[in-house]
Design a protein around this nucleic acid. Structure first.
Lengths: 161, 161
DNA sequence: ATATATGCAAAGGGTTTGCACTCCC
DNA sequence: GGGAGTGCAAACCCTTTGCATATAT
């Protein structure tokens, strides 16, 4: 939840306009789900969005969150992130970018598109079809998980139980 | 199923050795599941592996395939591919490589590691944690899907139903 | 006013697990 | 012979769907 206020509002106004133009009603629930996903850069899953929204709309149901996120995705306003297994995660950052993924805890952070500029379509890929986008996944162990691992190791060395 | 005979055999001997060393028993079922995944470069899901193996071992159960693929993955002999939604898919190619992914039909094809050589770890990623690997996902529409789309378009232009 | 959206509950698909029987080591 | 592996069925999680009620337009 560290998207700037300006970015949040710009996303929300885009969301409202696109939903209205698509003939979707701007219900209280939808607006709050939109606010929740637009305001997060943690690539939350449905459950996380649900929990966040419920603080403001305690009566909202989980399937409304599913339906709303599905609608936003169909409109191209958010994207599903591809991660191994588990629950679907969503990304409201529409700028071209890449991801750092922690293989331990599943943390996903954006890397600006500039990090890998000018990636070309290799011959092998061009032969397979029409390329639409090129994304880089940088996988590793985030600093938090590393610290956890280090504490473990220290305990082992000290012979603690 | 277009892995060369030599590659298939080399993978299978590695699988057998690693499983034996891990103390896993080399059962008929496990060997056939191993053969199936080692022989495919289509990144099959569990169901596809199950169907393939069942032609040779008609009595094998789906959960044995799940358990065997899980065991092979834990040993680092195969990798789960990350794709959006749906069933888990596995990859027996242990060489560093990238993927072309069809956004229409889910086709996944390997791109040799040489296609993106010398990708560096950007500052932003280095600050997030210890990087282990960098993989590129080239997304697009495969030629088969394109042809299907073209046939549709032609029919529309001709006003056919 | 009316059609769309919601909430609830039930169904659905993929995956995992508990258990008795089988079979590799 | 003994313990790990198998097959079966039930349970599990995430997600979708059918339906009556509520609500945005």
């Amino acid at each position: 939840m560290s998207v700037s206020q300006g970015e949040l509002e710009s996303r929300l106004s885009l969301f409202s306009r696109a939903m209205r133009e698509a003939g979707l009603r701007l219900t209280h629930q939808r607006l709050e789900v939109a606010r929740e996903i637009a305001g997060s850069d943690l690539h939350p899953n449905v459950e996380a969005v649900y929990c966040g929204v419920r603080e403001r709309v305690p009566t909202i149901s989980l399937d409304t969150v599913y339906r709303t996120l599905g609608a936003l995705e169909r409109l191209g306003l958010i994207n599903e992130v591809d991660v191994i297994g588990g629950a679907a995660r969503y990304d409201a950052n529409l700028e071209h970018h890449h991801h750092f993924i922690c293989t331990r805890c599943g943390l996903i952070r954006d890397l600006p598109g500039a990090a890998y500029e000018g990636l070309e379509v290799p011959e092998t890929a061009a032969n397979l079809g029409e390329v639409e986008s090129i994304n880089v996944q940088v996988r590793g162990v985030c600093t938090e998980c590393q610290e956890r691992i280090n504490i473990w190791k220290e305990r082992e060395e000290n012979g603690d139980e």
